[in-house]
Design a protein around this nucleic acid. Structure first.
Length: 602
DNA sequence: GGCGTCACG
DNA sequence: ACGTACGTGACGCCG
């Protein structure tokens, strides 16, 4: 297949790039920045990790094709002294009337924060703009080629690769200057190109009122971090190590030889070939398969427990303490705002959005001295959103009347009065309610319950006859996707669904499920993002010491001094439910605790 | 670097 | 008849 890339030649980088290494030149640049409404900038540093990065230089651009580089941290060559540069730039960067344009501005803001600059007014982050526009690759260099047809020099040309890789501080100033100026220049040009596209696609409000104001909120959360009780985890690790060792021994004894218990392939050989245990379809050894093999051989229960323990130990108990920052003594996750297909955030290094529920691990997360944790989570937010988007009468009335939604669904699909719903019936109904959000199939429902395919199929039919609005909504959403090629949230966030008109059944079905789920999951994300921005504004305006520290999709966790607890509780209880108006009330549950593992409703 | 597995919402 | 639940990130194995 031929490349989609335009055949016209790459544009030449005609440009005026200037090195700023005298006070005169710096003053001239500052006056130019002062006269501009907005400017693009970029930082050069010694590390991709903002918490470790040392500032090497800054580049600025106010006019396409023209840029300046201020070296401040090169190991050789002469340049201005870093602190004098910082103090001269600080007023401009902290001026909230001066718009800043950057590519992944959260990173640059973190670097500046480490030099005492609290940057204000990130007006356009080109990485996030590209994300909202559905660009597949968000790197500056790739976007420059794709959107501007400009081929930029990769950083490896300057610093090399592998173990011999240099840092920017070791690159000579003239080379670094050209590179850094191009970054600021291209960022500015991209902003000028992408902003009209946002406008055309109805994404500008989402961009300027949600995504851009969210950046400093996330930065604050990342920089604050969270305290971790490493001593506790280290002790826990030792006792887990003993248990893991004991389980390994029992596993080997049960079959008479050793093997690598961590190898699914070797385990499959033991279970299916050697022991001849029931071998359904593939050679999967996942938890569900093991669950089905229970009682057939002693190894099965040992393996189930071994998997649980080794997962907790390797992923959390052992890994988390290693990520404690030596300067702050806390762990600092990184939130990715431009990754998911639905608009959710993601969290990495470490991922604090998948810490196991329950006391054992979570109690290791503790508040600072004299503080408590307060967590606030949206109750059944996605079903409430489904009721709003679908305008289904029965779903809406359930939430308006504060009914137990799973009990109501159970009553409808089982055809039984609410007073006669058993725990089992409610459990099935809960799975069905979730299934609706995912574009459920009879097979999916069968797998998630003990129902047969036929029963599952009947329940789905009954569900859609009782909640006709939901059925109509899923059908119209799929239709919209087929016609437009994308679906959207309440704030206009889009997800393009390329497979929606595919002839392949499987591709098409997957696309349909994505189309059904994204507006729901994405709207939940819109709502919590708005709430985060408003809560943070309130915290700042009231000069509270409370800090927002985590977001786990439908939950916010705060660290609050004892004497601010009641105030932050009422702020959160005021703002979260009213962040975006739906056709149904939004409910928020608040818990307070002395660690993340022992939170109690408040 | 892809795959299987499993932690979360 | 088709053959799956939606969205993530981290770990260990294997090649």
């Amino acid at each position: 297949m031929l490349s989609n890339r335009p055949l016209r030649p790459k544009k030449q980088m005609y440009n005026n790039y200037y090195l700023v290494d005298t006070n005169e030149a710096l003053n001239k640049l500052i006056s130019e920045l002062n006269q501009a409404d907005a400017f693009a900038f970029d930082t050069e540093t010694t590390s991709i990790d903002a918490m470790q990065a040392e500032l090497v230089g800054l580049s600025f651009s106010t006019i396409p094709g023209k840029a300046y580089y201020i070296p401040v941290g090169h190991e050789s060559g002469t340049h201005l002294e870093i602190n004098s540069v910082i103090s001269k730039l600080k007023p401009l960067l902290e001026d909230s009337n001066k718009g800043k344009i950057a590519h992944n501005g959260k990173y640059d803001m973190a670097v500046l924060a480490n030099h005492g600059i609290e940057m204000k007014n990130l007006a356009c982050d080109t990485m996030i703009a590209a994300y909202l526009l559905g660009e597949k690759s968000l790197g500056l260099k790739v976007l420059a080629l794709a959107k501007l047809n400009i081929e930029m020099t990769p950083i490896t040309t300057l610093i090399g690769t592998g173990t011999k890789q240099l840092t920017m501080a070791q690159v000579n100033i003239a080379e670094a200057s050209k590179y850094a100026c191009a970054d600021a220049d291209i960022t500015l040009r991209l902003a000028q190109l992408l902003q009209p596209e946002l406008e055309n696609q109805g994404l500008m409000q989402l961009f300027t009122e949600v995504e851009m104001p969210l950046v400093p909120v996330l930065l604050q959360m990342e920089m604050t971090g969270v305290k971790l009780n490493a001593n506790y985890l280290n002790t826990l690790s030792q006792s887990m190590q003993q248990q893991v060792y004991d389980l390994e021994t029992r596993i080997y004894n049960s079959i008479g030889h050793q093997f690598n218990v961590n190898s699914p392939q070797q385990l499959a050989a033991v279970l299916f070939d050697e022991l001849g245990l029931r071998n359904t379809k593939k050679r999967s050894t996942d938890a569900k398969v093991l669950e089905g093999l229970k009682g057939l051989h002693p190894i099965v229960n040992f393996m189930i427990e071994y998997r649980r323990l080794s997962k907790l130990k390797s992923t959390y108990v052992d890994a988390l303490p290693l990520l404690i920052n030596h300067k702050t003594g806390r762990i600092h996750t990184s939130f990715n705002q431009a990754l998911t297909a639905t608009g959710r955030l993601s969290s990495n290094k470490p991922n604090l959005q998948n810490i196991p529920v329950g006391k054992e691990i979570r109690q290791a997360f503790t508040p600072s001295k004299n503080c408590l944790f307060l967590s606030a989570d949206y109750s059944q937010i996605e079903l409430r959103i489904m009721s709003h988007l679908s305008q289904d009468k029965e779903l809406i009335s359930a939430f308006l009347n504060n009914e137990d939604i799973h009990t109501q669904t159970a009553a409808k699909v089982f055809g039984v009065d609410k007073s006669n719903i058993t725990a089992d019936m409610r459990r099935v109904a809960k799975v069905i309610n979730f299934g609706v959000l995912y574009g459920m199939s009879s097979y999916g429902l069968e797998q998630a319950t003990t129902l047969s395919r036929k029963e599952a199929s009947q329940f789905i039919d009954t569900y859609f006859s009782k909640y006709a609005g939901v059925k109509a909504y899923t059908e119209s959403t799929i239709k919209e996707a087929e016609e437009k090629g994308y679906v959207q949230t309440i704030l206009g966030r889009r997800r393009y669904i390329p497979g929606i008109n595919a002839s392949n059944y499987q591709v098409k079905s997957e696309a349909q499920r994505m189309a059904i789920n994204m507006p729901v999951q994405g709207t939940a994300s819109d709502i919590i993002k708005v709430a985060m921005i408003e809560i943070q504004q309130k915290i700042i305006s009231l000069e509270l010491k409370t800090r927002m520290i985590l977001q786990v999709h439908d939950e916010l966790v705060f660290e609050a001094p004892q004497n601010e607890l009641m105030e932050i509780r009422s702020i959160v209880q005021e703002i979260m439910p009213s962040a975006i108006n739906l056709s149904v009330p939004i409910k928020v549950d608040i818990k307070i605790g002395k660690n993340w593992g022992e939170m109690e409703l408040s």
